[in-house]
Each structure stands twice: as C-alpha cells, then as structure tokens.
Amino acid sequence: MGTRRVTMRDVAEASGVSPATVSFVLNDVTEQHILPATQERVRAAARELGYVPHAIAKALREGSSRIVLLALPQGIRGPGLDAYTRGLDDELARHGHVLLVRHGSPLHGGLESVVASVAPRAVIDLSGLYQDEAAVAADGPVTTNDGGWVDGLAAHTLVQLRHLVDAGHTSVAVALPEDPGWARLAAVRLGFARQAAVRLGLAEPVVLTVPRDRAAAIQAVRDLRRDHPGVTAVASFDDAVAMQLLAALHGLGVTVPDELAVIGFDAVEYGSFATPALTSVHIDAGAYGQRAARTVLGLEPPADPPAGATVVVRESV
C-alpha cells in the first residue's frame, strides 16, 4: 500500500467483514454482538496492515478526553521548541491523545476561545510562561520549576556561562536577537545570565543586540569591541544569533576564539559547519516534552529524568 494511510475499509477487506464491523471491533462497541473469532480476525488484520485510528476524529468525538492544547507565543520558534513539541506529541500519541498547537495572535482571538471550542483535556500554556518580567529582574535566584536552577532555563544558562568561566574568561557579553518576537524570552535569558554571573563571580555581562542585517551586525560588534575591550567571550541567545555573530566577526577580521570566544545555545547540527565550528549548549528538549505529556495525563514521570544541559565542545571556545 506504499505510504497511503491504511483505512478501516482496508482492514474490512483483509478480514472479510464490513467496515461497520471493523468500526465496532476497533472502537470496542459492546452493544454489538460480534463473535470472538471475528473480533480476533479483525484485530489481527489491523495489526498486520499497521492500521492506526484517526486520532483527531476520535478526539473530537470524545471531547475533553483526548485533546491537549499547546499554546505558544507569537513569533517563538527554533529547534529546541521543535524538539520539545515532537517529544510532547509522540508521548501523547502513545496514550491515544492528540496535540493541538495554537500560535498566539490577536487575530486568532484569546486562548479562552480556543479552549471553549475544543474542550481540551489539558492546556500547556507556554505563551504565559515568564509573563512576570518583574520577577525576572528581581534580586535573588529564580526558584520556579519553569525557569528553575535545578533543571530549567536558569540552570541551562548557568551551564553556558560556567563553560566560559572554566575556559578562563572573566568578562563576557550576552548576545540577544533583535527580533521583537523574542523580546520577552530574551529579557528572561538576560536576567538569568546576570544572576548566573553573580553565582560565578563574573562582572555583570555586557548586552550585545545582534541585528539580522549583516552590515548592522558588523557595526554592533565593532561598537562592542570599541566600548568594552575587556570582553573576551560572548554567550549567545541561541545558535542562530551565534552564527550571525560569527559572520560579523569574520567580516571584521576578528579571529575566533583567539580574540573573542563564542558559545551558542541549542547545539543544532548546522553549527558544526560554521567556521570555526560552534561550541554550544545541548538540551534534551524532546525529553522535557515527553515529561510534560505524562504530567498532563496524570501518569508517572519517565523512569529516567531528562539529562541536564551539556556543552557540545567544538572550536569557537
């Protein structure tokens, strides 16, 4: 059958019964009297053909029992989020649930309207994550699970800066994206970097906003080196910003890491093709997605918790 989706009609033809009988058997309809031998024949055919129920239709029929809504901020994207979503989706599918992803936008109405429309079993609202910017700027460590210092974003940021400290750097900059869609998360990351610097005995990090325009990015890096000559390393918001930074440094003739070290965040595969190859922080985002799925379904967490952030050491530090 190639890549075509196996249907109930295919199962019916293979088992010699009607599609209605297949539906009754595979949906466990107890009101219909179907011989056990026939039920087993249908299930065996379904297994052999690799039949998978149309989960979305099933979820819509069952209302709140099988839909999980993931609400994302408008403009937020990236490989880490993609991996998290895949892990979430895969684990939900293993338990017969459907993931519905909603990207926030005023044009789409409020989150409440979506919830009212689909009646999900649970809502994972990443669009509401880190809404309290005052908390990010406050003195003292952030202790919430979402951005915690145990295995959350704060801890991952600490790993990034600690690698620079271990490499001998004492004055660092934090490179942030210019894209306004990342503004809230960038503010959060900067707040964590400042707190991590205190923990590590570093001076407060210098902020470097990296424009997407190449000429503007080169000028921003030129200004950084003129105004802060003591900075010897840059911790980037993510690998995309780090790659922009590497291009700007190349344009200025600045050698990496001899004159300025650069560390990314996300450890995407294409970072290994940069010149020099990009050192970056790897996070098992898929495992966090799996854990989130099990949490919202009321299941025990995975036997093995997500591994902590690790540094993929390449040439840029």
Rank of each mutant, 00 (worst) to 15 (best):
P211T: 03
T255V: 15
P302Y: 10
H163E: 12
A155W: 09
R43Y: 05
Q195R: 15
H250G: 13
R162Q: 15
A235F: 06
D125Y: 02
L164A: 12
S280E: 03
F265W: 07
R214Y: 07
A261L: 07
A193W: 12
E300T: 04
G152P: 00
A137D: 14
A12F: 00
E62M: 13
Q131L: 15
G308R: 12
A217G: 12
P211W: 03
P19Q: 14
T30F: 01
A307H: 11
G96A: 06
V268D: 09
I34Q: 13
T3L: 07
D10M: 05
V313P: 00
A233V: 08
E62C: 06
L107S: 09
A138E: 13
G181D: 15
R121D: 04
G128S: 09
L200W: 13
W149I: 08
S65T: 14
A155N: 10
I34C: 12
A119K: 14
V98Q: 12
N27I: 08
A20M: 14
S236G: 01
A46K: 03
P306R: 05
V142L: 13
A59T: 07
G87I: 02
L278T: 08
L107V: 00
S280I: 06
A45Y: 08
A293S: 01
A138F: 09
E133P: 00
V136H: 11
T275A: 13
A248P: 08
G147N: 05
I67G: 03
E315C: 06
V159G: 02
L100T: 08
D179P: 06
S15C: 11
F237S: 01
Y130A: 12
R43V: 07
V198D: 11
E40N: 07
S127C: 00
D125M: 01
M1V: 08
D28M: 02
V29P: 01
I56K: 07
L126T: 01
W182E: 15
P120F: 07
V234T: 04
S105G: 11
D10K: 00
A309E: 09
Q195M: 13
S117D: 11
L99A: 10
P36I: 02
V25R: 02
E31Y: 14
S272Y: 01
V268Q: 07
P306Y: 07
D166F: 12
G271P: 04
F265D: 01
G63M: 03
D223M: 00
A12Q: 02
L60G: 05
E31Q: 15
A46Y: 01
V256A: 01
G308K: 07
L200A: 14
L72E: 04
G251E: 05
Q39V: 12
A287F: 06
D125G: 01
S65A: 15
V241H: 02
